[in-house]
Design a protein around this nucleic acid. Structure first.
Lengths: 213, 213
DNA sequence: TTCATTTAGGGGCAAATACCCCTTTTGTCA
DNA sequence: TGACAAAAGGGGTATTTGCCCCTAAATGAA
């Protein structure tokens, strides 16, 4: 029985080399090569010999992150399966990754035997999900989506400015709007997200990755 | 020649298992056991048979982080060397870890051969530092220390509350102080850190890890 | 073609914030 | 024991913010 070809995409070299060793110890898998980000992977794929059966994909990476990369793979290389491997535990990130087309989502905080299982299941049944992720998926059906879906593009744009030392007057000037319009955005957002003041908004924005310090 | 005993302290199991494989492939080192945080390590050390020659220590961990743990080791087990292994690239964290007593600081973004080198050097010469870290050390001598050293304990405490939806009046009440005292703290901090308003303070605090959202 | 939603804007007001000024008490250390 | 820093507190004021109210144009779907 031939072993499946696997590629690791992970920006921290030491970790990808360590995981490489782990994967090569699994009977049914062999690591072809390592990539430091999504862009590198896409470039490699130009040569058909470099297209593996499965990609083990980190999410936080420079240049091109795991979510963007997975979207591209789903589009252009639908036969390559993606198993996400990340430290991100928050719902939004996991859902984004699954929507992008990942066949499974594994936390870095798992046993190596579970990694092997997950890889086998993805290749044999097409997907692998832990109980946690399954519950999350169910939850995402009932719970009307994540709170930042409530926010319109213009409001998200405003929040970027609000996470700054600028006064609302200055923000208005930067966005070429009347100060009163800006205050309107603020009032609506406070109401939607149940916030009392700008400090609360900044913390919310950072927690929900609307703004990154 | 006998091999050195090594312990890995890292909260993500898969990573510690992967690195375990890597280290076990080095001729002069063998992994004794893995820990998920500092507390676990200290508990293990109660039995002298569990005390290794060197500890490979992550920094971001739940319960007891790498910096606290390294301080305890320096105090109570000075013969155990610590090599920090982290993704944190910011000066303050690195310096804190070195001040706590780490013999070296390695980014997770390095070659495995460099890890082996570093381990050997730490055991043979007592320390290992990359060029980057050396430059950083030199820099920390000239540059008058990091900005959060300017802040007094009481001010740091205030900042925790300021990164909240509370008004200054409420913060005063929580800290059992007069609102005027709180305003005094704020004014002093704004002056020291060249800030214009509370939003600026929140962003500063998060950037400099004074407050974690 | 209505009706609803989105986007943009305005008035007024109370509370909170930012920015100056200033004093007293408590350590603590040289 | 005097000097000096830190901690705690106060007065006054201009600006900013938060919170109501309400209007008009544009867009878009039924």
């Amino acid at each position: 029985m031939q072993s499946y070809k696997l590629v690791i995409v992970e920006d921290h070299v030491l970790l990808s080399q360590a995981i490489e060793g782990l994967v090569n110890s699994f009977a049914q898998f062999e690591v072809c090569y390592l990539c430091k980000n999504g862009k590198e992977l896409i470039t490699r794929f130009k040569d058909p010999k470099n297209i593996p059966d499965i990609v083990l994909m980190d999410i936080n990476m420079p240049i091109m992150n795991g979510i963007e990369t997975t979207k591209i793979l789903k589009d252009q290389y639908p036969n390559v399966r993606v198993l996400a491997l990340s430290v991100e535990e928050d719902e939004e990130t996991i859902l984004k990754m699954l929507r992008a087309g990942a066949k499974g989502y594994l936390l870095k905080d798992t046993e190596k035997s579970i990694l092997e299982n997950a890889l086998i299941e993805v290749m044999e049944t097409g997907f692998y999900h832990t109980k946690n992720v399954t519950n999350l998926l169910l939850g995402s059906l009932t719970k009307k989506n994540n709170p930042s879906d409530l926010l319109k593009p213009r409001e998200l744009e405003f929040i970027q400015h609000a996470c700054t030392e600028k006064t609302y007057r200055e923000i208005a000037s930067d966005m070429c709007l009347s100060p009163k319009t800006i205050e309107g955005y603020r009032d609506v957002i406070f109401d939607k997200l149940h916030l009392r003041n700008r400090t609360g908004l900044v913390i919310y924005a950072i927690k929900h990755k609307i703004f990154t310090p």
